[in-house]
Amino acid sequence: MLTTNCPSSLSTPPILWRYRPGKLRRAMARRLACLAIAGAFCLTTCSAALGQTATKPAAPNHARSVLGFEDLKNNENCAVEVTAGAIRLKGEKATVEVATSSINDVLTGDDSARLVGGFLGTLTMFAPYSSGRFLSLFRKKLDTLTIEYRDVQGGIHGGILAMKPGLAATLKKQLVDAGAHTSVPIEDPAKPAATPSGGAASSKNSEKKS
């Protein structure tokens, strides 16, 4: 007698679920979870980006020292304070003080950076379905302030600070008012510059450039 393994068409389940239904369901669930996470992340990052452009702090109290300041690590966040005759950058472990009289030039610029940066940003490269690339679409604008100054021996140093947009011009104005030189004249900002907060910080590791 001839027998067949094929079930009748009425009792056959849909072709998607006929073979390994558990695996397919798991894959679908995983995909949905990934999409939900990516969606939630997008919402938070978009709201953060919008919030960043909407609120503009009055004075640059904090900046990121990109490079060029001795004793401060590259890309270290530091507190910025402009006093009567110097700019003081206070990092986690060290403080750098540059006298404004030794500053040859202060120049502003602009840059951008990934919204999700650092170690987490690197991890997103391995995220599934190229969601790391998708997150690269979201970037934040930055202002840069390049400070060219001379040390005791007369050697030229170049320090770069990165800060929130719109703050570099304010900081530049403060520095020029305190006695720094600049090759590019300051454009009048729309808002008047505010004085930075914070008292005189002292540190054991402070380095004074003259």
């Binding site: 610029g109 050697g155 030229i156």
Partner: peptide, 28 residues
Amino acid sequence: PAFQMAIYERALEEVKKTGIFAEIYRDG
């Protein structure tokens, strides 16, 4: 200007790393 200064500062760092020269002086 940021690029200009970054090249200068990083060149100083990298040349120092090679260890070829006993003394490395900055401009000025």
